[in-house]
Nucleic acid binder design. Structure first.
Lengths: 201, 201, 201, 201
DNA sequence: GATGAATGAGTCTTCATTCAT
DNA sequence: CATGAATGAAGACTCATTCAT
């Protein structure tokens, strides 16, 4: 589907993607039929297959776009920030805000993890995110700001906390993202132990 | 399906569940057909519906059983342990071991989160897990061992790190659970920052 | 199924037929499964096939029994009555009473008329009923009491009115059978026209 | 299924209904599968569900259409006829002719009476027919032309005779409708008794 | 006699995809 | 570009019947 699209065509395509995201997120990928998508927009089935080769292709497209979009937001936010720990913090905050603004997409990503055929596309994006995080972590370790543990673990820990808190507190409980971000940052940086337990310097 | 089952019947049921878990985990819930399941066991289609009301019901059954089983393992492991931080640590380790021994079930739980109709059952189990964790956290806070933050956040942070590291390092990369557990415990307890950054006591 | 049955066996068989009649009448023949029938009686499936060769055979059995039973009631009622018109009247009344006492069976007979394979059995019984009625009609014509028209038509008219009024007023509206019988008798004998239209004497 | 249909679509739909009527009438509703219907027309299975929501819906559609069509024929036939007894007569004759021209539909209507889920639709149509007949009957009573009995009974007697004679003499024995209609009219109007039994002559 | 278990052809229905217009 | 129509494989589920115990 490398069609050259007119502006109107691009708009149609956008509409289809947006509506599909909504339905996929609400109902699940499989339970949402192509018929449902085109009916929701009041167009014929041909339209769908004009813009997308298949339902699967559409989903992959959504997945790629999603991951790319979040990454762009991250990069923009940390631009020019020198301190790696600060960059991590900003990364967490940006994820929270973006996540609260794109609530729908969470389930899609999660679903992608449950079927073999979507895993490659999913991993590609997640690897990028991990690599980004690891860069900051490594730099932090070099500077002595971050504990000298396997940066891979650390990067995943960061993503794990962030994703979990986002899912529960943003999407299920609807808390403001700033508050959730604060908690995530604290927990990531300092762990859960009372600070005075840490041995003296 | 509250059939009174003979021993032979119970065995059949178990077989069906186990094989279904395997297929669901490998292929996804929707792509796995009932026909595939019964063919895999070399039995007729009616057998499936003799033991389960529907494919959906089977999935829910698996979900419930899964959550119950993990919880049992946890409770057994922490029995008699007095220190709440220790209990948290043991909880994380138990999850890791259980998770490495029941690799299949991870995807199922994740899939359950992507369709509305499975959410209630899923949440029920997760709420229990969170509540369990929160009990330890609260006690830790009271004893001054855990930072005095919202225990809800802390509990979710623990589960988030554990789940993420389990998924990636156990299931994707096949690392030994003890090692992953160590990392998880450290990150949960101390966060990512270099310890000497924490102000003296 | 020409089994020699013990008294207990005959009772079981009766139970099965009665319950089946009830279910067939309420739900229809096809929508009622053998499983439903045996479950309703709390017995295993083997029992059913011990007493009946098949579901179809059971239905045919019910059909035959029904028609035989009604006929017996008729014959008993008109025994010794000499006047053919009186016999017709009694026949109508007996049908009404029997029909009100065996409400369930009506639908079964009606259903039998809608599938080719049940028609032969159905017709056999109905032919008998028509022949019975025609005997009275012919005699009535000979005696000059009944209009000299094709007795076949007359016999069917009698059955038609009786069946229709029974269905509607007995089974749908629950009126007492005596009242419905009165109406049927009058309409059959005198038609609907005002009597004074018949040339005065 | 409130699809906007093209002329071609309307034709398909008609084809499906007509063929289904034929099969339902010949074989019965349940024994006729959707597969059989579409195969009979040499189309794919999806076609059926493009035009009808379900097999049940199709049947109900047929039922409604049938009843509506007969009623239209009746109303057209009695238009402008003043005498109520004459209108009843014409009604009977019209039913006979229509019934002989739509032989298939008889069994369908009969079948509808044997399953709970079809009864509402069936009754709706029959109530209309009864109400129509009752109007004529009442007027006839007022004019002194019809015996002053419960018009409800009379109306049902008319329909009962007509239906029964139609079923037997038209559909089973293939007699010409005019002849059957004559008999029905006579029997309805005058009953079965010899006229000279009516007082004096 | 009776039961729970098993069979598997057959049912209705859905749906991604294609195509004539 | 777009639509309504069509395809047909595949899906979940049912059920009369049989059988080992």
């Amino acid at each position: 589907m490398n069609r050259r699209l007119t502006p109107r065509g691009r708009e149609r395509r956008r509409q289809l993607m947006d509506y599909a995201i909504e339905r996929f997120a609400e109902n699940g990928y499989h339970p949402t039929s192509v018929a449902e998508i085109v009916q929701g927009l009041g167009v014929g089935k041909g339209v769908f297959y004009w813009y997308f080769k298949s339902k699967e292709e559409l989903f992959l497209e959504i997945l790629r776009e999603t991951q790319l979009d979040l990454r762009r937001a991250q990069q923009q936010a940390i631009e020019g920030v020198d301190d790696p720990v600060k960059r991590i913090e900003i990364g967490i905050r940006t994820t929270m805000r973006w996540s609260s603004e794109h609530a729908h997409l969470n389930r899609l990503v999660q679903f992608a993890a449950t079927e073999e055929r979507f895993l490659p596309a999913l991993r590609k994006g997640q690897d990028v995110a991990i690599r980004d995080a690891m860069r900051h972590v490594k730099e932090g370790i070099e500077r002595g700001e971050i504990r000298d543990t396997d940066p891979d673990y650390i990067a995943h820990a960061i993503l794990g906390i962030t994703a979990q808190l986002a899912r529960v507190f943003l999407h299920e409980r609807g808390q403001p993202w700033e508050q959730v971000a604060d908690a995530a940052v604290t927990l990531v940086l300092d762990g859960i132990l009372a600070t005075d337990r840490s041995p003296v310097g």
